[in-house]
């Protein structure tokens, strides 16, 4: 099951710059939602606020799932992640010294088996086996078995983005926040990414918020679009409605 993301009148300032100005969005559960807007419009800042990297100056961030509403405003990223929120970065961030498989394992919740005492007593073997099995089955499901033992430096941009998205499945993410998943990715790989997003969304019911510049690739995949401009919400609606909105065209063309 997915979760619902509610951002309520969030404001984030950096000195005199207002990066987000009373932004409210409401992402229904199990939907794939696009977040578009010109450079500097505040898309990544919004991601950083939702995932706990920044604390908003005003407003609240709420997650609603299985009949429960949790106010996550001001939580640390690790707590938000454990609640089922996964994110990716504009430039993919995998741990360079670990293989793809190990990068996946990093996102598995080892619970008390990640403690010092458990490590000393070597009580983690069973959990590790389960984690490896899980990671391999995810990689297999998405046809990435062959890269399991490669290191990030050996992978293409598309594969990096794919692994970064899939590692969210290791932690049972219910909300995926993808920052420009198609940037620097060839078009066949972009299609594979869209399929992956759709597949996870369909089978697990996970909610997706996707930032993207390459609108054509994005629009095939999304149900709803929010448009940010200069830190404020400019428009929202079905994809074709949103991009044909005059204000949106103006914002993108800079007129």
């Amino acid at each position: 099951m997915g979760v619902k993301l509610i951002v309520e009148k969030v404001t984030k300032r950096f000195g005199g710059v207002v990066a987000l100005n009373r932004v409210s969005i409401n992402v229904p559960s199990s939907l794939v939602v696009g977040l578009i807007g010109p450079n500097g419009s505040g898309k990544t800042t919004l991601f950083n606020v939702v995932t706990g990297y920044y604390t908003p100056d005003e407003g609240r961030v709420l997650i609603e799932g299985s009949g429960r509403v949790v106010d996550i405003t001001g939580w640390n990223p690790n707590r938000i992640s454990r609640l089922g929120v996964a994110r990716t970065f504009q430039i993919p961030r995998l741990i360079p010294s670990l293989t793809v498989l190990e990068n996946m394992l990093l996102f598995y919740d080892y619970g008390s088996c990640a403690s010092i005492t458990c490590s000393l007593r070597r009580k983690w073997v069973d959990v590790e086996e389960a984690a490896v099995a899980r990671a391999m089955s995810i990689l297999r499901e998405f046809g990435l078995e062959s890269i399991a033992h490669k290191r990030p430096a050996e992978l293409s941009a598309g594969h990096l983005k794919l692994v970064e998205t899939l590692r969210g499945l290791m932690s049972d993410a219910k909300l995926f926040m993808l920052d420009e998943p198609f940037a620097g990715v060839e078009s066949w790989m972009a299609r594979k990414l869209t399929d992956t997003i759709r597949k996870i969304n369909r089978e697990k019911g996970s909610t997706f918020v996707v930032i993207e510049h390459r609108i054509t690739e994005l629009l095939e995949g999304v149900d709803y679009v929010y448009v940010l401009h200069n830190g404020s919400l400019l428009a929202e609606g079905k994809p074709d409605e949103a991009v044909s909105d005059e204000r949106v065209i103006k914002a993108y063309l800079g007129k």
């Binding site: 992640s81 990093l106 080892y110 458990c118 983690w124």
Partner: peptide
């Protein structure tokens, strides 16, 4: 003690933390 920790899932988390602390944080580790 050192080799048990470095060759365990915790060792992997520590390594992740060293290479990119933000990623380890986003992986759910305090």
């Amino acid at each position: 003690i050192v080799s048990r920790i470095m060759n365990s899932p915790l060792g992997r988390i520590l390594k992740g933390m060293r290479d990119d602390e933000l990623v380890a944080l986003y992986a759910g580790w305090p």
